[in-house]
Simulated scan of single mutants.
Amino acid sequence: MDRISTAGTILGFVVIILGTILKGSTVEALWNPAAFVIVFFGTLAALLVQNQGTVIKRALSMAKMVYQTPKHRPHDLISRVVGWSEITRRQGLLGLEPQIEVEKDPFISKGLQLLVDGGEPDAIRSVLEVDMSTREAIDLAGAKVYENAGIYSPTLGIIGAVMGLMAVMQNLSDPSKLGHGIAAAFVATIYGVALANMFMLPMAARLKALVGKQSLMREILIEGLVSIAQGDNPRQIQTRLQGYIE
């Protein structure tokens, strides 16, 4: 679990609750079922209209990446690629077959299989780059769902506030209800703005950064496999790949 992201989420809730208390209000004042329905379900409705089901599904599956960040270790990947190069120099390309069987990453397995099958360097690069671009586009679309949620939720918050004020205006004859009604109306604005700026937009930015790191790892892998296919020696490959991270 990513402790920084978890701490940030908890801190966000604490800031809202503590700020409410310090302003002289109560925690109970933050709860308003009508505002919750308008902001959260309204935002969800907008996202469902904008995106296909597959995009929404991908976005939901990516949410855990914020709190369980995938480990991107380019130095380790470079070491592995150099190791594969050394194997091919001693045993030939067929010496990499055992590596395919134990590899858990489908992208790496695919690249190694292309290499073992004797694919030309340009062909290996072309196939893997298409795969990388497709996966990157899918992941960025998933991350954009959270970005769009951060755009819609403040507007839904305003709508909720206006609807609350409309209800207040209908009860002007009863002054005892005005204060509570106005306070409840603005809860929707708090929901919308807080959801956008403390959660949705930061999540979108974090996911985009993770997608970028994943693409960099795949670029390193592609360059390494192509270099092996070209017959470059391990030291040359290591020097070339280190240029991606230095």
Rank of each mutant, 00 (worst) to 15 (best):
G95Q: 12
A123M: 11
H75I: 15
T54N: 14
K208C: 10
L128Q: 07
Q99K: 02
S5E: 01
M65T: 05
P74V: 10
Q99C: 08
D105F: 04
L94T: 04
Q242V: 00
M203E: 01
P202K: 06
E120L: 14
K104V: 14
G142V: 07
M203K: 06
A123N: 08
L172N: 03
I16W: 01
V162N: 09
L30V: 13
V81T: 07
I124K: 04
L60D: 11
L96R: 07
V39G: 10
D2K: 00
E223M: 13
K110G: 14
I228H: 04
I16L: 15
G243M: 11
E86A: 08
I228N: 02
D232C: 11
E219K: 14
M198E: 10
S173C: 02
I124P: 00
L140P: 07
I87Y: 07
L207C: 14
E101I: 09
V226M: 05
A184S: 15
P154N: 06
M1R: 13
S215R: 15
I220M: 04
M166W: 05
D76C: 11
I21F: 09
D131T: 13
P175Q: 06
E86C: 06
L47F: 14
D2I: 08
G24I: 15
G164A: 12
V168G: 09
V14I: 15
I16F: 10
K57F: 11
I151K: 12
L114C: 03
K110V: 07
V193A: 03
G111D: 02
K144F: 09
L115C: 05
L22D: 00
A185N: 01
